[in-house]
């Protein structure tokens, strides 16, 4: 659905995005993750046809953005980061305007589509209000509603949940999940659990370059170069450490908490699951095991790791 090849965008001498390539399948929900100024918004703006790429090609549904901008723009719904809408218009009038711009000519169809997106985004009570008077959350939803008008095949959402209250965030996430499948969705965010929750694939972007592309699960797996097992054991700490260290596959044992029941962090090689061996070693040495669980590295940690690693290279 979307093909980006060797995309570079420069502002004067400043390179915002450098040599990015990726493709997005139809119906996929792709997450864009990166620190501020990483090039997320720039990439999205090129995709929407707001400005052309300096180098490289961008194709949406087979249409090249520089050659057939109108065909691309017709297929894209865009929610910008700072949802700047016409403040002096009423919600429903604004949506009708967008509908007409998107090429809905017949007034019956326009009315029906506008009604549809109003209902979908839960802004029915606000439709007669002036946009400038709406709260941030509702403005965000109006922004989403206008992106949905014209039934675009691709949705590009730049930080769609920023500024919403927790309940609204849950609702919008649900909506985005629903939209995926029928539509291709690209969204950028700072909130990492959000990516894990709604995205099928993640692109981590840093300093204008792609740091990683994969599913959230794979990223978790790939990047955890080690598996951490947390154990709570009662007994002599020195004995415990020596017992655990003797198990095959253990790289390091660290005591985390003192007291009657001690907590240990056991770092193991990820290629083999040795939880069974660890438990067996504890029992065989007449120690009492209270808890044994693996600690997964959160996407947050992976993200930090990737981004800081990139910085080391630079």
């Amino acid at each position: 659905m979307i093909e980006i090849q060797n995309l570079t965008k420069r502002y004067g001498h400043i390179k915002a995005v450098e040599n990015i390539s990726f493709t997005v399948q139809k119906g996929e929900i792709l997450g864009f993750l990166g620190p501020n100024g990483a090039g997320k918004t720039t990439t999205m703006r090129v995709l929407t046809g707001y400005f052309p790429p300096t180098e490289g090609t961008v194709k949406v549904a087979g249409f090249n953005i520089t050659e057939k901008p109108l065909d691309v723009k017709k297929r894209i719904g865009y929610l910008p980061e700072n949802v700047a809408l016409y403040k002096d218009m009423r919600v429903v009038d604004y949506l009708k305007f967008v509908g007409r711009v998107e090429g809905i000519k017949r007034s019956a169809k326009l009315k029906q589509q506008v009604g549809n997106v109003i209902e979908r985004c839960g802004i029915g009570d606000m439709q007669k209000r002036i946009i400038g008077k709406l709260s941030k959350g509702y403005r965000q939803r109006v922004g989403l509603a206008q992106a949905l008008l014209g039934e675009p095949e691709v949705l590009i959402l730049d930080e769609p949940t920023v500024g919403l209250d927790p309940k609204q965030i849950v609702e919008i996430r649900k909506l985005i999940k629903e939209l995926g499948g029928e539509r291709t969705v690209i969204l950028s965010t700072h909130i990492l659990p959000e990516v894990q929750m709604i995205c099928e694939r993640v692109i981590i972007i840093n300093e204008g370059k792609i740091a990683a592309i994969d599913t959230p699960d794979n990223l978790n797996r790939q990047l955890s170069k080690q598996l951490v097992v947390l154990m709570e054991i009662e007994g002599d700490p020195q004995k415990i450490v020596s017992v655990l260290e003797n198990v095959d596959g253990v790289m390091e044992v660290k005591q985390k908490r003192k007291g009657k029941v001690k907590q240990f962090e056991v770092i193991t090689r990820p290629d083999k699951d040795i939880r069974k061996d660890l438990a067996q070693a504890v029992f065989e040495n007449q120690l009492t095991l209270y808890e044994l669980r693996t600690v997964e590295m959160s996407l947050e940690e992976i993200f930090l790791k990737l981004v800081t690693r990139e910085e080391h290279h630079a």
Partner: peptide, 14 residues
């Protein structure tokens, strides 16, 4: 100034 150009220029209009 208000930033509405961003959406305006991404609508299918020349």
């Amino acid at each position: 100034k208000s930033g509405t150009v961003e959406l305006l220029f991404t609508y299918p209009l020349r």
